[in-house]
């Protein structure tokens, strides 16, 4: 029994980070119908920024979010402006984005390999290896911090979308782009901002990942598969869906990893993707799309 609960705790402690990783990707898809296959590569890019700040100036990776988030926001705004803004009216826009972002992921991987080589990296603040001991259970401090910060960020994003003027404009654009234009929302600007916010979330995720996982430039290949299944399972464009599926799959993967071994854990994500596409392609909280 203790074991079962212990595994549950470990799963939940990872769920928040997965949710943060997928939140930006689902937002970007929801607002612009961009399938951002470079999302994991951007996350790793941010992880390297945190790594570099840690190595050179001993900046705590959590503190370095103050750098990665704004930097990635700007990267997102520029990336959208240069590659997507002029194509937004193309009827095959979403198809185009798949190719463009896939190519971008490869470019990012190449540049990171050149700058940082392919060596496994991670940041090592003091809490990276310390656990919290609560009764018979143990939880790595790093995962607790990462998940709590992730949840705080996602809740802030949700509040921002729900209660601010710009947030409402983003939600309106997600729900009906034409209608948003009709009421005077500048959808081009909203799209650019949303891409920035999506990548700022990726930036935060990168900083947090840097002390809970080891990473190397080509690791994004493994993570994008996981992210795709989280986003699709939640319902593409649904923030709540992405959160739900992240915690759900993190816990399931945690059990799979415990009973069958860590090698089998990734199977959870692909199997979930397979099953959801078979039985409920719009995802848990997604809507059927008409266009």
């Amino acid at each position: 029994m203790i074991q079962i609960i212990q595994v549950l705790i470990l799963g939940l402690a990872l769920g928040g980070v997965y949710a943060l990783m997928s939140s930006g990707m689902t937002l970007i898809f929801g607002v612009m119908r961009i399938v951002n296959l470079a999302h994991a590569a951007f996350i790793i890019m941010a992880a390297y920024i945190s790594f570099w700040l840690f190595k050179v100036w001993r900046v705590d990776p959590i503190v370095s979010m103050a750098v990665t988030m704004p930097v990635m926001f700007l990267v997102g705004v520029l990336y959208y402006r240069v590659l997507f803004a002029s194509r937004a009216d193309n009827p095959r826009f979403t198809d185009i984005t798949v190719l463009v972002t896939f190519a971008s992921a490869l470019v990012i991987e190449g540049v990171l390999s050149y700058l940082f080589t392919g060596i496994y990296r991670s940041t090592s603040p003091v809490y990276a290896t310390r656990p919290f001991l609560i009764g018979p259970f143990f939880v790595p401090q790093s995962q607790v911090y990462a998940t709590l910060i992730s949840i705080a960020l996602i809740v802030s994003l949700w509040l921002f979308l729900q209660y601010t003027r710009v947030g409402n404009a983003i939600r309106a654009t997600m729900q009906n782009r034409n209608s948003a234009q009709v009421v005077g929302v500048n959808v081009a600007l909203v799209s650019m901002l949303s891409f920035g916010i999506g990548l700022a979330m990726a930036g935060a995720a990168g900083s947090l990942l840097s002390f809970i996982f080891t990473f190397f430039p080509s690791k994004h290949v493994a993570w994008i598969g996981m992210l795709m299944s989280l986003v699709v399972l939640g319902g593409m464009g649904s923030l709540m869906g992405a959160m739900l599926s992240s915690f759900l799959l993190a816990v399931i993967a945690s059990y799979v990893s415990f009973y069958w071994g860590p090698t089998w854990a990734p199977i959870t994500f692909y199997l979930a993707l397979f099953l959801i596409l078979l039985f409920r392609p719009q995802g848990l909280l997604g809507k059927k799309m008409d266009g």
Binding site: N168, R171, A172, N176, N178, A180, V183, V185, K287
Partner: peptide, 15 residues
């Protein structure tokens, strides 16, 4: 074309 997942009042606010 309304905003389907917003309430009637939120739709009017967007107006």
């Amino acid at each position: 074309s309304l905003f389907p997942d917003m309430t009637v009042k939120e739709n009017l606010r967007m107006g």
